Amino acid sequence: MGSVSRPRGNTFGESFDVKVLDQLLKQFGLHPDDVVTLLRYAPLGLTHLAWRNSVLEDWHAGPESRISDGDMFRTNAATTEVFHANLWPAFAEDFAAADLLDRQALDEYDVDVLEGAFYAADEEVFDPERVLPNGMTLLELGGEEVPLLQEHGARQFEALLEQADEKGVHVVVSWLALRGAVSCPQWWLSPRWPSVVDAFLNRLDDNEDSFWSLGGYPEALPAEFNDRPGIRRTLLTAPYDLSADAAQFCVGPGGLRFIRLEQPLRVG
């Protein structure tokens, strides 16, 4: 990940206060000892922190946007999968043995476990030759600004490892889970995503849904939506495999990002 200096400052460090984290997790319906759910949200937190909340936003939202909303949707999903695929195997053996039943079990892990997962994800996510779902490489998308994205990701990983070394692996996992639950609770791979997909498809099947009162029901849907079971399966398992038209429809006229689920009840 390179020799990038770690961010300093009281505000960042104080956000890893265990008591505060516990309170906030419960407010968002997450129990601090529910390690499985924490590790469902943690990859989303990593994606938001190290990838999405970066110079990538300038490439996307600037006056000369380099990447569409639909392609951002697909790329964020593909990136989340990388973080998920590297973070979960670090704990897989203990999951299989049912030994990860509370947060204290996470502190049996050395920080090296997180470092290895972060390093592997860093190598894949920020590789300039990585091919994105729209067919472009990261280098083709970012050009000479790719190092800015790489440095941003490295700084986030290093700061998280510093906190894990000082306060424990479970604190960092909790912090990432909270970030995922707060910033992207309805992204792909979150526990809420299947309900989001069902609500989205139910809306498409009801041309009198109140959502259509503003822009009207679409005159034509992308061809993939003719196969409702098929599109549901793709949305649930691999939204990065959607066509460009289907992805753009989802986050554009289809209003996928405007699905609103009821917030979970407070835990404890």
Rank of each mutant, 00 (worst) to 15 (best):
residue 48 H to E: 14
residue 48 H to W: 12
residue 48 H to K: 06
residue 50 A to I: 06
residue 50 A to T: 01
residue 52 R to D: 12
residue 53 N to E: 15
residue 56 L to M: 12
residue 56 L to K: 00
residue 57 E to V: 06
residue 58 D to Q: 13
residue 60 H to K: 11
residue 60 H to T: 05
residue 63 P to A: 09
residue 64 E to G: 05
residue 64 E to L: 14
residue 64 E to Q: 10
residue 66 R to T: 10
residue 66 R to H: 14
residue 67 I to F: 02
residue 69 D to A: 14
residue 73 F to A: 01
residue 78 A to C: 03
residue 78 A to S: 15
residue 81 E to M: 12
residue 83 F to S: 02
residue 83 F to A: 04
residue 84 H to G: 05
residue 85 A to C: 07
residue 87 L to S: 05
residue 89 P to Q: 06
residue 90 A to H: 00
residue 91 F to A: 01
residue 92 A to L: 14
residue 92 A to I: 07
residue 93 E to T: 02
residue 96 A to C: 06
residue 100 L to R: 04
residue 100 L to S: 09
residue 101 L to E: 14
residue 102 D to V: 04
residue 103 R to T: 12
residue 104 Q to H: 13
residue 104 Q to V: 12
residue 106 L to H: 04
residue 106 L to N: 06
residue 107 D to C: 03
residue 107 D to Y: 00
residue 111 V to R: 01
residue 113 V to Q: 08
residue 115 E to G: 07
residue 116 G to P: 00
residue 116 G to M: 08
residue 117 A to G: 03
residue 123 E to W: 03
residue 124 E to A: 10
residue 125 V to W: 04
residue 126 F to K: 10
residue 127 D to Y: 07
residue 129 E to A: 14
residue 130 R to S: 11
residue 134 N to I: 08
residue 134 N to M: 08
residue 135 G to M: 11
residue 138 L to A: 15
residue 139 L to D: 14
